[in-house]
Amino acid sequence: MHVMQVVLSLRTGGLERVVVDLVNQAGTDFQFTVCCLETAGDWADQVPRVVTLHKRPGVDWSLFGKLRRLIRQENVHVIHTHNAPAHFYGAIAGKLAGAKVLHTEHGVNVGHEARYARLNRLAAPFTDLTVSVSRWRDDVPVVPNGIHVERFARPRPGAGQRVGSVGRLVREKNYPLLIRAVAGIAGAELVLVGDGPLRAELTEAASRENAQQPRVQFLGNHADIPELLAGFDVFVLSSTTEGLSIALLEAMAAGCPIVVTAVGGNTELIEHEVTGLVVPPDDESALRAAIRRLLDDRPLANRLGAAAQQRAREQYSVAAMTRRYKELWRQLAT
């Protein structure tokens, strides 16, 4: 069976990690093409076959024809789109080419909520099935993301003051809030892993908040995330919006004590005072208090980290995610 994964790009990110893992874990019963509508991205070399269509800015009407021809040439049985822009092009072109269409909704970028909703609405009549990685709408089934949980079992030194987060440097992550929160904790340092368009802006903000001593490290994209997570005394996700965060799942698998904001799939993964601490979004004082609490109370931090790790191992493996999608691809193709 030939499945075409349709994304904007295979840049570094959680959605893109899901696509790479699905392609590489599904097995020999499936053939895959990953169609990147914009650019190939940093992770294009991690999958066997990538086709890039170089989408023009705005609505690129020529893309429907290009994608339809590609689907027919490749004899694709199922189109699997990821998030609204890919859904819009992939679903319409897929139906015109006679393929079945599965769409996965991963989350919404800040400032694009109305546009994403409009694109999904336009694509819906051409879509056979829509699923989401976290609770989105009552009528949409959930297929949770999964990770390679076994890769994150590392010794944790602990007993430090290192606060960390992993993710793209974009508005959705609300890193200015995290920088301010950590700046108010004596002796704490902040490590941000990942890159993105806001790096210069965040570096400047960190300098303002920590004028006396630089306590924020920007590590950029990093290959060995398990090693870095093992060195975090507290992992924080300060987002204003989330789907089912791969970075958060990885922190859980690493046994990190965790603080998250109560948005999107965060509250599906983290139960307050059971697998981590949950605070309201965009609340600097609450975020600071939760981080300080875990840094000061090591027994609590260790207990929450161990519970989060156990939950990740039991419920959020790549194998479980891949098995569910394989079932859906087969159902649609028959």
Rank of each mutant, 00 (worst) to 15 (best):
D224Q: 12
T130R: 13
E150P: 01
L177I: 07
D128A: 03
V216R: 10
R135L: 03
A223G: 13
A183E: 03
L178P: 14
G164M: 12
P141F: 00
A223V: 15
G167D: 08
V149A: 14
Q213R: 15
G167R: 10
S207Y: 02
P197R: 10
D138M: 09
A205Y: 02
D195H: 10
V191S: 10
A188R: 07
G196V: 05
A205F: 00
G220I: 12
V182N: 04
V143D: 08
P144T: 09
R171K: 15
R151V: 11
G187S: 04
V182K: 04
R137W: 04
T203K: 11
A188H: 07
L202W: 10
E150D: 09
L129Q: 15
L169A: 02
A181H: 07
E189H: 08
A211T: 13
G164Y: 00
I185F: 06
G160I: 06
R180C: 04
V143E: 07
N221E: 07
V143T: 12
V170R: 09
G196F: 03
Q217V: 13
W136N: 04
V142I: 11
P176G: 04
V142C: 02
E189F: 00
Q212V: 04
L219V: 09
K173C: 07
A223H: 13
R199I: 01
A205G: 01
W136H: 10
R215M: 05
D224S: 12
V191C: 12
D195K: 06
P214H: 03
G187E: 02
T130P: 12
G167S: 10
E204F: 05
R215L: 02
E201R: 06
R135A: 10
V191A: 08
V166F: 01
V142A: 00
G164W: 00
G167F: 05
N210S: 08
Q217P: 00
L198R: 13
V193T: 15
V193K: 12
A153Q: 10
V142R: 01
Q212G: 14
V131R: 02
G184F: 00
K173Q: 12
N145E: 06
R154H: 11
F218A: 02
E150G: 03
P157Y: 01
A206G: 00
L192H: 03
H148K: 07
N210T: 12
P157F: 00
D224V: 04
L129A: 11
G158M: 06
I179W: 01
G146F: 08
S165I: 14
Q161H: 09
D139S: 13
P197G: 05
V133F: 03
A159Y: 13
P214T: 04
P155T: 00
A183H: 08
L178K: 06
E201D: 06
L198S: 05
P197K: 07
D195E: 13
